[in-house]
């Protein structure tokens, strides 16, 4: 199937003087008034709400220590030189003795969350957690130790905030929905698709948010 793109000459819509002065102004004002009375707000009230991101989001990276085979692919592909290999003494279960092995550590001052390290890891020893809004007290804290790198970082916003998620809607674009409700629906529906019920709830949540 070969359908080439085709140029299509178009024209800027012309308007008569009266059409411009009357219809143009009234049209603009009508749209403004419409949204004044029926606003379509998408703002996330951030610390009070936070987006529950879906799995697959390229958030912070966690190491699964036991799966790492010290191949250094992650450190080699890191475009920001954030990941380095350090040698530590570990107990090898097969050889039954302590030996020096290399493990990756990450410097979050430099990380750009491109996810190359996760994608290149041959044993899937790295994975993303689906959140990205973390707080560190100092830049030195962002240079993670090997122990910290194995823990999922603490997601502070989740303690106070309400998880919300955005679903697509034909009328309103993105609609903010409380996450639990949608999650419950999804589990019932088992299809992973936002049903009509969740959309109704979404509009409710939207109305309540004003």
């Amino acid at each position: 199937m070969h359908v080439p793109a085709k140029p299509s000459p178009k024209e800027v819509p012309r308007a008569t003087f009266l059409g411009r002065a009357v219809a143009g102004n009234l049209g603009a004002l009508a749209v403004g008034v419409k949204y004044f009375f029926d606003p379509n707000r998408i703002t996330l009230l951030y610390p009070h709400e936070y987006i529950k991101l879906r799995q697959g989001y390229r958030g912070y990276i966690v190491l699964i220590f036991d799966k790492c085979i010290s191949c250094a692919s992650c450190a080699r592909i890191c475009p920001a030189r954030a990941m380095k290999m350090v040698s530590i003494n570990v107990f090898d279960k097969k050889l039954k003795k302590y030996m020096k092995k290399k493990y990756p550590v990450i410097n979050y001052n430099r990380c750009i969350f491109c996810g190359f390290c996760v994608d290149v890891c041959p044993t899937e020893a790295l994975y993303h957690v689906p959140y990205h809004d973390l707080v560190y007290n100092s830049m030195a804290d962002m240079v993670l130790t090997l122990e910290d790198f194995q823990k999922e970082p603490e997601f502070v916003t989740a303690k106070e905030g309400v998880p919300v998620t955005y679903i697509y809607d034909e009328k309103k674009g993105l609609v903010k929905v409380h996450y639990e409700e949608e999650g419950g629906e999804v589990q019932k529906a088992e299809g992973g698709q936002a049903s009509a019920a969740t959309e109704a709830q979404g509009e409710q949540a939207q109305g309540g948010g004003g």
């Binding site: 199937m1 070969h2 359908v3 080439p4 793109a5 085709k6 140029p7 299509s8 000459p9 178009k10 024209e11 800027v12």
Partner: peptide
């Protein structure tokens, strides 16, 4: 045309 653009049906708007 690069990638899949030679198989897609679309127009290039031109204004004078």
């Amino acid at each position: 045309p690069y990638e899949a653009y030679d198989e897609l049906d679309f127009e290039i708007p031109i204004f004078e």
